[in-house]
Structure formats: structure tokens, C-alpha cells
Computed example of a mutant assay.
Amino acid sequence: MQNLRSVANIMLSALMFALAGVIVKYVSSEMDILSLVFWRNMFSFICVVLVGFFSGQLSFKSERKSTHALRALFTFFALLTYFYAVQNTELSTAVLLQQTSPVFVPIIAFLVLKRLSDRYVWTGTMIGFLGVAFTSGVGTHNLNKGDLSGIISGIMGGAATITIWLMSDTESPYRQMLFFSLYTLIYSLVFLPWVWDSFTLSLLPFLIVLGIVTTLAQFFLSVACSYASTDKIVSWTYMSVVFAALFGYVGWGEKLTTGMLAGMLLIIIGAQISQKRV
């Protein structure tokens, strides 16, 4: 039952990440990336505080504030580079490169936590990544700045996932979201002199929704990590590439080929393999 809950939550997280990509793809034509990140963080913090206030969970007490700050820092840079990638390359490709993070999770887990993931994790992760490559068609064009930014986003995302793993034994998903939104807002205040005049009322609904869906993506990821070992389930985040490919097909007429459908199947197979027990 816990495995089912973890998979359901991480797939919801993947869906939210893909939806965020759609919003960024649309809004980035009218707003620069620094502004997008700042207003996303602002509305995310407001949303989390309101939820905590009305639910009675609002509290800034924690013994792991340094880990919260580190998670937020990694995610902050992941957002910056992800939004830039979405703006400067195809949606499915940007999501693919951001979702290289599962590849880095077992590597970082070994280097930082001295934990060597089992063969099923490595096999499933690589099969899923191969499926992602088919789905996105990443080999069909030369790497550009947007692609490189997406790769950096993947590395930062993997590091952030490890910090979530480290906190999941003591920090509730809501507390993680509260400190995550607080610290990312603090980090983005450095951009305030450049973004203050960028806000336009017509973009308000999109910015609010962007803040909500990216916060939900992080929330569902935190919940999933509280139910199961992170390295066993993180390959399911590859599903965001599937969602992004479908959104790209519907919204921007991006191609949906037989190879992409085969890649989607490989993603699911790889995620299933990762969950197997030795």
C-alpha cells in the first residue's frame, strides 16, 4: 500500500512539473526568467502560509533549518535553469534534461550518504532514461544554451531530492514546503531591483497558478519520499517527460511519434524495475 501511495504521489509531482513547464512556456514570451522565478516564489510562499494558517500547521520551528535552506538553494537554482531551458528549447526536451535528476540521485546517495543503491535501481533508472531520450527526441538537434541549462537543472534537482530524503524521517511534507517556500523567496529577493517593474496584472492568474503547481510538485515529491526509499521511486519522475510531450503535442503541435510512444513505455518499465527488492 505504501508503494502505491509513493508512486501515486510522485506521478502527481511529475504532472505538476509538466504543467509548470506549460505555464512557463506561455508566460516567458512576456516576462524574463528572473521575474518568473521571483513571482513564482512570492505566490508560492503566500499559498503555503495561507494553507498553514487555516489548517493550524503554521509554525517556523525546526531543528533542521540548515537542511531546509540547502534543499531550497538546490531547488532555487534548479528552477532558474529549468525555466531558462523551457524558454530556450522544446518543452519535452527541457523536461527531459531537468528529469536527468534520477540518474544523479543514486550517485549523490553513494557520495554523500555512503549508500550504494541496488542493481534494480541502477537498471531501472538507466532504462527509464533511455525511454526519456526516445520520448524527447533529444538526439535530433545540437545542444544549445537551453539544453545545457536543463542538464544543470537535473543535477540541482538530484541534489535537492537527496536533501528531501535526509529530512523525511522528521520533517512533515507541510513543514518542508513552508521552509522551502520561505528560503526560495529569500534567495530570490536579490533579484528585486531588476524584477519589481516586470509585473503586469494580465499575467497575475498565470503567476498564481505557477506558484501553486510548482509548490504542489514539491509537496507530492516530499510525500512520496516519506512513504518509500527515494532511490527506489525517483524514476517515476520521468513521467513528467511523458506529460510534457503530450502537452507539447496539444499546445504547440510538437510531434508525437512511434519512437516517443515506445519511449513512454520504457519509462514505465524502468520505474517498475527500480521498485523491485533484492
Rank of each mutant, 00 (worst) to 15 (best):
Q2N: 12
L4M: 03
S6D: 01
F17A: 03
A20E: 14
V27E: 11
S28N: 11
F38Y: 13
N41E: 09
S44F: 07
F45C: 15
F53C: 14
S55Q: 07
F60T: 07
S62D: 08
H68G: 08
R71M: 05
L79I: 08
Y82S: 14
V86Y: 00
L91I: 06
S92M: 01
T93Y: 01
L97C: 03
Q99F: 14
F104Y: 15
I107G: 02
I108F: 14
L111I: 12
L111P: 03
L111W: 06
L116H: 10
L116V: 10
D118P: 05
W122V: 05
F129L: 10
F134Q: 02
F134M: 01
V138Q: 04
H141V: 13
L148R: 04
S149H: 04
S153P: 04
T163I: 09
I164L: 12
I164A: 09
P173K: 03
Y174D: 08
Q176T: 12
M177L: 15
F180G: 11
L182R: 12
Y187F: 15
S188Q: 09
L189T: 14
F191Q: 08
L204H: 12
L204N: 11
V213S: 06
T215C: 10
F220R: 07
S222A: 15
V223H: 07
A228N: 05
D231E: 15
K232M: 10
T237F: 00
V241C: 10
A245L: 04
V250Y: 13
M260V: 02
L266H: 01
A271R: 01
Q275A: 14
V278I: 14
